[in-house]
Design a protein around this nucleic acid. Structure first.
Lengths: 245, 245
DNA sequence: GAACGCACGTTCGATTATCGAACGTTCGGC
DNA sequence: GCCGAACGTTCGATAATCGAACGTGCGTTC
């Protein structure tokens, strides 16, 4: 394990549970010696990524630069947000964009209306790809071998009674969603939550991201989603797609 | 310069201008040898922070984790967003929260309505503290010596004809804003933009952040801001303050 | 189309930063 | 106010790191 890896591990160790850590706590949390933790924290402090008051080290807003370096490389996101806002206002529901990363989707843009999910979704949030509409849509663009690899790698713990956990069933569902060009997921991640997603496809035909709308399952039926959400969602996605390279 | 510092410099080197870099480009951009850049990029790839396709390395969404590590240490932000949304809906204008970092404010939460600024503001965006309402409000909580230090350090390039660039005048303005408990900035950063900010104060009396509302200067007068925006803004800020430690 | 030049990625021994164990220090409990 | 434990710090042995040299692939020229 290199110093760089350890340093990043230290940064990663900070979180809601550990907003501030002493040298020893950081060492324990990242499995490095105290001497190492000391050097790393000193370096990070010099670079302005952490501050030390007393014995406790805590993160500074400077590390936002690192995190947002990724977002700033994805120029299309900037163009997507206003389009998503229009979409959200037209449908009166929250809209999100996410990209697929292994077996998770990572939210990269979000226009919320009222909150319906128990967990607060924001940019950077990760959700299990196999149980979300945006995840399934993007997984559908993988070839069979790769899709099966990820199906085997992911743990299929059910979130609700509706969660599809059978790999074979998931495989067919994902292939079917790809076929029809959209994915609707009904209360598989959370009771009362229904969402619909379409892919954002670049000019080479690759799905670089997915765009969705989500709503209360009681208020919006599957049919209603397909009839009234889908056309607007597709229009927005194709507009956004014009900005991806 | 340690390896950790160089590694972080490489991550930092990625941006809108350089979404993808070859090994040599990264080396040149960060002033390290190609051998060093090679090892760093290999390590970052192993950790999943960058991917290599062909000769080009690019960032993966994993680095968002790093950025959001900071936000997740600031628990109050999660509680602030719904309150800001209420505020924004009540006033029909965008609301933002930011924290002061040296001579810049860093946006940590934002609830947009229609867009009025030329640059898109999002979480992580930085603006010059001395020419923003949120910045001035937080600067007002520094003691004289520290405030003067930052006044001297900042470059005072005017953004519009209204921008206050005289240090003495800025000092008095900041002290006055602190006195009255709010700051209104009129078209100093961008023509047509007027905004009002109040501090978010912890129980020790420190300003941990600022909260603002911004509007078109033509549509909302200074007096109107103070009369109708300020009370709601103050209420929201004091509610948010209850969540800061 | 072949030869050249150039820039790139890669390799390897000298060098330097790094790590584990021992040391001094501070804090909390009794 | 003493003791014990956990903490931060130091320093020589060690292992990762760096600069210079190497081989390779690509574009350019004649």
């Amino acid at each position: 394990m290199t110093t760089l890896a350890k340093g990043l591990a230290v940064l990663d160790a900070f979180g809601p549970r550990q907003p501030a850590m002493t040298l020893s706590q950081a060492a324990a949390a990242t499995q490095v010696s105290r001497a190492t933790a000391r050097r790393i924290l000193r370096t990070l402090a010099e670079l302005g990524y952490v501050t030390q008051n007393g014995r406790h080290f805590s993160l500074t807003p400077n590390i936002l630069n690192l995190g947002f370096a990724y977002l700033s490389t994805q120029n299309w996101i900037d163009h997507a947000v206003p389009l998503m806002k229009d979409l959200s206002e037209q449908i009166h529901e929250s809209s999100s964009a996410s990209i697929l990363q292994d077996s998770e989707v990572v939210y990269v843009a979000r226009v919320p209306t009222r909150r319906i999910m128990s967990v607060a979704i924001s940019v950077g949030t990760r959700l299990p790809a196999f149980h979300t509409s945006m995840g399934r849509m993007q997984l559908g663009y993988l070839d069979d071998a790769e899709l099966w690899r990820r199906l085997r790698a992911a743990d299929m713990a059910p979130y609700t009674g509706n969660t599809i956990t059978d790999p074979q069933a998931l495989f067919q569902r994902i292939r079917g969603d790809r076929e029809q060009g959209f994915s609707i997921v009904d209360e598989e991640l959370e009771r009362g939550l229904r969402s619909i997603a379409v892919p954002i496809v670049d000019r080479r035909g690759h799905a670089v991201a997915a765009l969705n709308l989500s709503a209360h399952s009681m208020r919006t039926s599957r049919e209603e989603m397909q009839a009234s959400f889908l056309p607007a969602l597709r229009t927005a996605a194709s507009k956004i797609a014009m900005f991806v390279n």
